[in-house]
Amino acid sequence: MNKTTITTDEVKRLAGLSALEFTEEELEAFVPEFERIVELVDEVKNCDIGNSELKYTTHKLCGCREDEAKESLPQEEILLNSPKTKKGSFCVPKMLD
């Protein structure tokens, strides 16, 4: 069994992908805890399942939705929960092009 080691840098990389911030303190607690969780899932990494192709659950093309346009929601409904809107649009601080 090869154990996966988790470095602080690795956790930082994952935090970047996750759009999450961790303080140094939080990181310190998080890394060993995360390592224990990875140890759990390593059982899958280390198990032997032989060679198999992944199969997909499918449906037939003819069963897919017909191309008919239907009414959309009213603009005010769409924007209902938005933290900030302007001119009928969702709004964020100006981004660089």
């Binding site: 939705r65 008919e68 346009a69 009213p74 603009q75 769409i78 009928g88 649009s89």
Partner: peptide
Amino acid sequence: NSKVFCSCKNQFGQEPNTNC
């Protein structure tokens, strides 16, 4: 006529967030 994953109109040049 409609979008790829829902039935909203595939249409250019509408008021913002009205084909949603």
